[in-house]
């Protein structure tokens, strides 16, 4: 069992607990979840990344390729409250910037945590 003093490795439990902790501290929080993958995507379906309003994040949705873009979108969604389905892949228009080096494609659902 995960102990309370264990460092935040970004295990599924840690990530969601961190979301609750940040929210409890009065921070805006968004949760990003990989909801579909094609090809050799680095993280499986269900992988999560939690971001707060200071752009601090735990967990991951890729091998580091698209985290920056997801954090940027997450900051918008924290304010707007509108959840969004993001797609990333080699065919993406922004591929040069945030494409997946592995050639895989993924779909990421981003939502904010709210009362």
């Amino acid at each position: 069992m995960m102990t309370e003093n264990a460092p935040p490795f970004g295990l599924e439990e840690d990530v969601l607990k961190q979301a609750a902790r940040w929210f409890g501290d009065g921070k805006k929080v968004a949760i990003a979840t990989v909801v579909k993958t094609w090809g050799s995507s680095p993280r499986p379906v269900g992988s999560q990344l939690v971001v707060n309003e200071d752009s601090s994040f735990v967990g991951s949705v890729s091998g580091g390729c698209i985290e920056g873009a997801v954090v940027t979108e997450a900051l918008d969604i924290m304010t707007s409250g509108m959840p969004k389905l993001l797609s990333f892949g080699v065919s993406d228009a922004m591929a040069w910037e945030v494409g997946l080096a592995c050639g895989g494609e993924i779909e990421v659902f981003v939502e904010r945590l709210e009362i």
């Binding site: 439990e13 609750a20 909801v35 959840p83 389905l85 659902f109 939502e111 945590l113």
Partner: peptide
Amino acid sequence: MKLSTLDNLLSEKERKLPCVLVTRLGDGH
């Protein structure tokens, strides 16, 4: 995600009960 949903989810996990969070991707319900 509603805070109450997250709280329920974390409490199910604490009790080691299997559960599934179902999200309607169109509107996040």
